[in-house]
Amino acid sequence: MAMSQDEVFAKVKDVLVDALGVDEDEVTLSAKLSADLGAESIDYLDIVFRLEKAFNIKIQQGELMPESVLNDPKYVQDGKVTDAGMAELKNRIPFADLTAFEASRKVTDFSNIFTVDTIVKFVQKKLG
């Protein structure tokens, strides 16, 4: 039977508490991983590894955090994501809400799209 959103959220919360050393009550659906919970780049790899274990899923490199898009001059110019880059991001991470990012498109703002809710949606999509 498919897991409910609440069940996925509870497990994601455990993963984030372990990976980021934050308190449970800090892990709300709207909390941003980097800005609110202090996640750094290596933490995203840690989170991916822990999600794989917690949900018994396999996550390919770049599936959650599409670094290759953000490092590709074809998709990024002058520190901002191009139209082609935005299209690629929408294709690569359909589980993420890119509405707010669309306004600035600055690579330095990209991590803001990762909220706890983004992770929950990502896992739900992986679980099918």
């Binding site: 790899l45 590894f49 274990k53």
Partner: peptide, 10 residues
């Protein structure tokens, strides 16, 4: 090793 991929290892 808990997990190893191209980016690194846990």
């Amino acid at each position: 090793i808990e997990r190893l991929d191209a980016s690194g290892a846990s």
